[in-house]
Design a protein around this nucleic acid. Structure first.
Lengths: 109, 109
DNA sequence: CTGATGTGTAACAGGATCCTTACGTAAACG
DNA sequence: CGTTTACGTAAGGATCCTGTTACACATCAG
């Protein structure tokens, strides 16, 4: 679950969100944030070490792409807890919560 | 997504795991970790502020219980990415190389 | 070759985090 | 009451994070 630490930072979550729409170069990515490029380079390194992104050299550019596997692991980690809020939809047998979609509750704090 | 920062710590994740099996008192909880009780008290505070646990005073004891709502939020955050690995787990590289799929959620900063 | 472009790394500062020991406080006990 | 029990909080230190500026290096344009 090293991915959790990487995803704990808002900037890195945003990078992940951007890359979900398609790969991007490092500079192109950095241009969309209020921090300097080295800072983004640092974040990309953390994401890389967490396995969340992959880099591909394209000439002098570094193209980053999302690797969803750690997210899949996070999903698996979350799985055992799913029954805890699935039960809120009582009235039905919640033995197996599979196949149904958990509704998104309003954000708490 | 404040929960992500709280869950980034292994000790806190373990506390969450323990509480998923049922509520426990603070000291009882602390006894299962190799760190001192004040350290656990601190972790419980972070979890509390993230909304992941609730406290109930029972005499002089403080009974902690898991509140799954932030986990549900995390699940909802993860949802848009799910399609990235749900389709073809054995063709990730192709998937990544093509990019341009799934729309992404936003993130606070 | 020379210079511009695109990126990563180094060094450093400021703040956050995690742990420990010491102390404060409220409920239960005799 | 005075003590014990169960917690939380304060203070201090070591380490980690995140951001900035300065710099090292390839690669591309001429």
């Amino acid at each position: 679950m090293e991915a959790l630490a990487a995803l704990a930072d808002p900037t890195r979550r945003q990078i992940v969100a951007l890359l979900a729409d398609g790969e991007q170069g490092a500079g192109e990515l950095a241009g969309q944030f209020p921090v300097t490029r080295p800072a983004i380079s640092r974040h990309l390194r953390v994401l890389r070490e967490a396995g969340l992104v992959r880099v591909r050299a394209e000439g002098q550019r570094r193209v980053y792409a999302l690797d969803p596997r750690p997210l899949s692991e996070l999903d698996a980690w979350l799985a055992p807890y799913r029954r805890l809020w699935a039960q809120r939809l009582d009235a039905l047998d919640t033995e197996i919560a599979r196949g149904r979609r958990a509704r998104a509750p309003e954000n708490g704090r």
